[in-house]
Computed example of a mutant assay.
Amino acid sequence: MSRRQNRTRLVFDSSLRTLPEQDIRTILRAADPLIAIAGRAMLIKVLRGSRAQDVLKYGMDDNPCYGAYQGRTEAEVLAMVDWMILNDYLGLDFAGDLPLLFYTERGWSIEREIYANELIDGFDKLLAQAAPPYDMLYLKDRSRDMILLLLEILHERADPKYVPILEAWAQVDYAKVRKEIARVIGHVSAPAPASQSAATSSTPAATSPPVS
């Protein structure tokens, strides 16, 4: 006969009625490296800038939102994290008897946009600090829908400065991603339509009557 696992009974702090948009984005970003490997306690430590051994051992102090709420109490940050769970931005799923964080659909739709723009900011730094060829292997095996969103943002920006980055990226990723990269490069590299002024300048100018 199998033993029934004793799962921790979770109690949530429901004292907060609302949370500002910036706090929602901060907590979602802080949660990213913790998804499916840690729970509320670790997220609170990261947000408060804890120097606990488990935080430092796993490099959680490199989290871009590490210490975002350094001046707040554990209870205050717990209430914010629990608000995120109760309002369907984050969830908890059990692995054995351990409740681990996951993104809900609502939360992931925000986090993927945050992360995509963060990666594009990284492209800007790479272009400013290094010359091609660029090593883009770090983008391989990232979340596919986040990568597609990133490429759509670049498509909308239509900035040709990213073409060397995109060309280097296309050399190392999978066929479906390469296809989307090629679409973006084609759009960015397409010649701009002739301006109205250029069109009108091609028509013969009216000649002045001869001076008698």
Rank of each mutant, 00 (worst) to 15 (best):
A131S: 12
A131P: 04
F123N: 02
D62M: 11
R25G: 04
V163I: 15
G49H: 05
P133I: 13
L137N: 14
L90W: 07
A31I: 04
T200K: 12
R40Y: 03
L101K: 02
L10R: 11
L101F: 00
E167A: 10
G49R: 02
A130V: 06
G59L: 06
A30Y: 02
F102A: 04
A131R: 15
V177G: 06
V81Q: 07
A52I: 04
S201D: 12
V55G: 04
E21C: 01
T8R: 12
L19P: 02
Y66F: 15
E152I: 03
P132R: 00
C65H: 01
I147G: 05
P99A: 09
Y174F: 11
A31T: 01
R157M: 05
K57S: 12
S212G: 11
R3K: 13
D145F: 02
L90N: 01
L101R: 02
R112L: 12
A130C: 07
M42Q: 04
K179G: 04
E76I: 01
A36T: 11
R29L: 11
P64N: 09
A75D: 15
R183P: 00
R48E: 04
L43N: 02
T26H: 01
H187M: 06
S143R: 12
I181Y: 03
L90C: 05
P20D: 10
W83Y: 15
T26Q: 08
G71Q: 13
V55A: 09
S2D: 12
Q5I: 15
V11N: 11
S109E: 11
R7V: 06
S201Y: 06
H187R: 13
T18W: 00
Y89F: 15
Q53I: 14
A168H: 09
A36P: 01
K125H: 11
E156Y: 08
S15E: 09
A95D: 15
R48T: 10
P33K: 00
S109N: 14
Y66S: 05
W83V: 04
K179H: 10
G107H: 08
R7H: 14
L100D: 01
A131L: 09
E111D: 08
A198C: 04
A128L: 09
P210I: 04
D145R: 08
I165D: 01
T18H: 05
A198N: 08
K45V: 01
D141C: 05
Y174G: 14
R40D: 00
L139P: 07
D54A: 12
Y162W: 08
R72V: 05
D93F: 08
V55F: 05
I37P: 05
Y138W: 14
D97R: 10
L137Y: 08
V46K: 04
F102E: 06
D135G: 04
M80N: 03
R72E: 10
L127C: 10
L166F: 03
